[in-house]
Design a protein around this nucleic acid. Structure first.
Lengths: 344, 344
DNA sequence: GTTAGCACTCGAGATGATTGAGTGCTAATT
DNA sequence: AATTAGCACTCAATCATCTCGAGTGCTAAC
């Protein structure tokens, strides 16, 4: 276990390194007012901390920087929760003041605002459509054989598919189908559309339509296509301000990684349990992110997980501040969205 | 005017510089087989070309590189049109083979493919909704006082607005309104929706609805909101491979500029006349793009301008190849879209 | 008009000295 | 036994110096 003095030194070292991005030596630590012992003592402690793997040297006679294990320890044990500053608080609340009617717009603005106040890159996984309920379905033929199918959810989200219609389906078939579907499927969560369709609607279609088989196949197909969540970014260029990303090759690798939506989705989805999650460096699975940390929080509507907020920064990130901000915003977002869309 | 020899030398210099990104000296030019005169002669010619402003030096004893005026001359007078290579041709055609039903998807894939085969960054201004015709309008209430309004165009595009409904509008009002609008406005181009509404529909609403004024106001408001085109990007990180963008500051400035959709739209919209347009360096108005060139082509449906294809690269760009590709793709795209959506 | 020749310039690299911030270790001090 | 002072040592960073080579412009000869 670490002694109090070691804890203090580790804390100072990480705080300072996060601030300045420069290796810290025993002498500069000893010069702080809250340090009462000499640089030689600190040297010994630093050597011990290094042996335990919490800090490392960049070269043999350099100062120390935190290791990933050091950051992990810092986040798990040393983090003094900081209050969100007043100006940050105002920024966040202003999001909700001018009540934005579009959910997507609200999310987009949240991403932008997060990146602006943190100076890091924000990533938000958009409202999951999976557990929202069908409000209305519409099929609009746009030319011979093709039509646009529109599904509208109770959160005002619109899903759109352009499809080829079964060739022998005429206008009246279409109308009857739409009516039946709207009648039977309204209020059904997207996740259950397919089973409801097979269980309840199949019979109705059978009695009302000629070639019900093709249409049913077609609808089953439609309802089981994976709906992937949208990914919103804010401040992608903020990465370029970090001293650890002055190398264009590193930037390229990271950008290429975070523009692959499926990868990002996987990354942020890892566990959608509530609470703040911090992934440091290599914990992130993507090798392009080994000098980055990712802090995530999730937001929900009426207890139902809806999406994920994330901040991507260097491992040398202002953990306390970002954690505080994400915690606040995720709770606010959850509250506002629940108010708006969960009103029974 | 330039002599034939000067033309030859300028052509060689620009071609080589585009290939290697390194200043070219008289000696290396004289070593080519197609050059029959000595380096001293070339030195004299280079000095003349420099006096005329077509080429410049990076420092006093360096080789020459093309100036913007040089590139301009090259593009306007020296460009030998090159044929699109077979493999590029296949790539482009494969876009259309697996017939994609979603127009947006086709555009998105086009952007990706363009960036992959050119190794530059592609920007596509996505189908303009302005001249497409209304196919169907739907209003779906999603909670008390709010509704989603959906407009579907004849190209299968869906526009969505979440709006606050006038408080005293009941379900039957809504239904009547929707019916009237669909009846009267189908087939009307978006650009004329507002005038048609005022001219033809106002009277009908008056006779069928109680509080028609509020609703009319509301619809006028809706129809006159600017519909800004979507911007699609491909290969944004390709910029980082260019030797002229090894400086992170430059990259940041450019990225910040091209992520401002309104700026980009303005930039690509500048003239939507047909044909290929080449904007070199400072011709681009944005100072962040002064070391870039932008080559644009437009695509249309049935003669109606729909959007713009663009390639963004360093001024040292492979003009002939990119021009050939854009020309081909824009024409193919126009043909395919016209076939698909202009069938009377 | 063309070319050979020459003095000159400048960037890019290599080399070496200097500095300063850091280390580990040992011996003295508390 | 813990702490500290002192010292030899290491290494990155910086700067001056040098060399090399690719380039130039200019002049005089072809």
């Amino acid at each position: 276990m670490l002694t109090n003095r070691q804890l203090l030194i580790l804390q100072i070292l990480i705080d300072e390194y996060i601030r300045n991005a420069e290796p810290l030596g025993s002498r500069s630590i000893s010069k702080r007012q809250d340090i009462t012992f000499s640089s030689a003592t600190i040297r010994n402690e630093l050597a011990d901390l290094e042996d335990m793997g919490f800090i490392e040297k960049t070269h043999i006679s350099s100062g120390r920087i935190p290791s990933e294990k050091g950051y992990r320890f810092y986040v798990d044990h040393l983090l003094a929760p900081v209050n969100v500053t007043n100006s940050d608080l105002q920024q966040i609340h202003s999001l909700f003041h001018d009540k934005m009617s579009e959910l997507e717009l609200l999310i987009e603005h949240s991403a932008k605002m997060l990146s602006e106040i943190t100076k890091y890159t924000s990533i938000i996984l958009g409202p999951e459509v999976y557990e929202t309920k069908l409000k209305h379905l519409q099929i609009v033929p746009i030319s011979i054989g093709t039509a646009v199918i529109i599904l509208i959810t109770d959160t005002g989200h619109v899903e759109k598919y352009t499809v080829d219609l079964p060739i022998d389906m005429d206008a009246s078939d279409l109308e009857r189908t739409v009516n039946i579907l709207n009648d039977r499927l309204q209020g059904v969560p997207f996740s259950q559309l397919k089973s409801k369709l097979v269980e309840e609607v199949e019979g109705l279609l059978l009695t009302h339509l000629n070639n019900y088989e093709k249409i049913l196949d077609f609808l089953v197909q439609l309802f089981q296509t994976e709906k992937s969540d949208k990914v919103y970014y804010g401040g992608k260029t903020n990465i370029l301000n970090q001293p650890e990303f002055q190398d264009v090759e590193k930037v390229k690798a990271l950008y290429n990684a975070i523009e692959q939506y499926d990868l990002v989705q996987q990354l942020l989805h890892q566990d959608d349990s509530t609470g703040i999650k911090v992934k440091i460096g290599a914990e992130n699975l993507l090798k392009e992110m080994k000098s980055c940390s990712l802090i995530t929080a999730s937001y929900s509507i009426g207890g139902q997980h809806m999406g994920t907020l994330a901040i991507l920064g260097p491992t040398r990130m202002e953990y306390p501040r970002v954690i505080g901000l994400l915690d606040l915003l995720s709770k606010d977002l959850t509250r506002v969205l629940t108010d708006r869309y969960y009103s029974k």
